[in-house]
Amino acid sequence: MTEKLLNFRAEGPASAPPLLLGPSLGTSYALWDEVAPELSITHRVIRWDLPGHGGSAPELIGPGATVGDLADLVLALADSLGIGQFACAGVSLGGAVGLHLAVEHPERVSSLAVICSSAHFNGAKPWEERAARVRSEGLGWLAENADSRWFTPGFTVPELVADQRAADPAAYAACCDALAAYDLRERLAGIGARTLAIAGREDPATPPAHLREIADAVPGAALVEIPGASHLAPAQCPEAVLTALRAHLDGGARRGMAVRREVLGDEHVDRAQARQTPFTARYQDFISRYAWGEIWTDTTLSRRERSMVTLTALIAHGHYDELAMHVRAARRNGLTAEEIGAVLLQSAVYCGVPAANSAFAVAQRVLEEDGD
């Protein structure tokens, strides 16, 4: 019999670094609609639904559940998708699941973003009372005041309020049980994953002090406060959340700079950095993040293959100054002088003999200078 798994939506290249996104109690993965598509440009994004929410089966959770039970469901989903280590980000209960994973399964969590969440949710009593009322009355009364709990006055996302209304009451109450029993304050100092805490300054449920408590306790953690955001910041202030997550998740510019140095060599990169001015700084950052931090790090093609594609493109467009640089890069990426010659010969057929004449002259000069 096939094990039931959390409902999920996958976006982005299968070869990209995996990123798991968790929702808040009462919502579905639609909470991430304004953020996930952008994150999927650089990551394999997996958005999951809580039991009894969205498309997840309510029977995945029962009375007396814990955040650890929810974390186990997330790990089972990751395992089913062949995902070992992953970055994770979560809102409220989804953030609590991320914290639990970072504490109990540190080998699985490469980085963590905790959004409008906490290491505790103000004690057991409020959640026990909410669970009891939901079990007896259903979720209609919560849907009626969802906007005031989730957003600042005048803002709403009807789809998320509909998610609250459509959630399974028993599963929702079991999630309340999990929040009632949850308190990780004494274990935050043991988290080793690179951690970002994001607070909504107008959040009444998990105010900035809760996120500051996490940032102060987790070694090296950073804190971002978003003005004008209440409890569901990814829905209300998606651009601000996206900016914070992009800067945190994989350090694209830092990773890109490392790859840039590996391919082009320290001497070239140092010269480029020395020539950088305030006018060109954003462009240099763009190159490091996009060309080197996203394209050259994609494992779909090897660096050897990327060098061959790059040489051909530079010849086709007559960019011979860049060609010299990338002939050296091709050697670093493992191409022999004979293989570079074969690429140039292929280019003669499809880019033209005059272009190949210039390319051979450039390549021969570079290879002779480098002793090839």
Rank of each mutant, 00 (worst) to 15 (best):
L160A: 06
C175L: 06
A170T: 07
S92R: 04
P106L: 13
A181Y: 03
A89N: 09
A162I: 03
K125F: 07
E128T: 09
Q85Y: 02
W127V: 03
A178R: 08
V161I: 13
G98R: 05
E144T: 09
V109I: 10
G55I: 02
G55K: 00
D183Y: 06
V114L: 13
V109T: 07
W141C: 02
N122Q: 11
Y172N: 03
A166R: 15
L101M: 09
S148T: 12
P63S: 15
N122W: 14
D163N: 06
W150L: 13
L179D: 07
G64T: 03
A193P: 09
P158N: 12
E59S: 15
L139G: 05
L112M: 03
Q85I: 01
D69N: 14
Y182N: 12
D183E: 10
P153T: 00
A96K: 15
V103L: 15
L188A: 05
L81K: 11
G94D: 08
A71P: 01
L81R: 14
L139F: 09
P63K: 15
D163W: 00
A171D: 05
G64Q: 12
C176T: 01
S110R: 13
S56C: 14
G94A: 06
G55Q: 02
L93G: 10
I115N: 02
V67D: 05
P106D: 08
G52L: 00
V157R: 14
A143Q: 12
E107Q: 13
V114C: 08
G98V: 02
Q164K: 11
A102I: 06
E128Q: 15
E137L: 04
L73Q: 14
H100Q: 14
L75W: 08
R149V: 14
P63N: 11
R108N: 10
D183V: 06
Y172P: 07
A65E: 11
R149Q: 15
E129A: 14
A87M: 13
D177Y: 10
L73P: 03
A132N: 10
G90D: 02
G68Q: 04
Y182L: 10
E186L: 12
T152F: 13
R149L: 15
A189D: 12
I83M: 00
V134Q: 10
S136Q: 12
L75S: 07
A102D: 04
E129V: 10
V134D: 10
G55R: 01
L99C: 06
D177W: 08
G55A: 02
V97S: 02
G95W: 05
P169D: 02
T152H: 10
G95I: 06
N145P: 07
T156L: 13
P126I: 00
L142K: 04
F86K: 07
W141R: 00
A113C: 11
S117H: 09
S92Y: 03
S80A: 10
A57V: 04
L81Q: 13
C175P: 09
V97K: 03
A119T: 06
A131H: 06
F86M: 09
C116V: 07
S117T: 12
S80D: 04
V134R: 09
A171N: 05
V74L: 10
P126C: 05
R185T: 15
L179N: 08
Y182A: 05
G192Y: 06
D168Q: 00
T156E: 11
G138A: 03
S92I: 01
A71M: 02
R135V: 05
E107G: 15
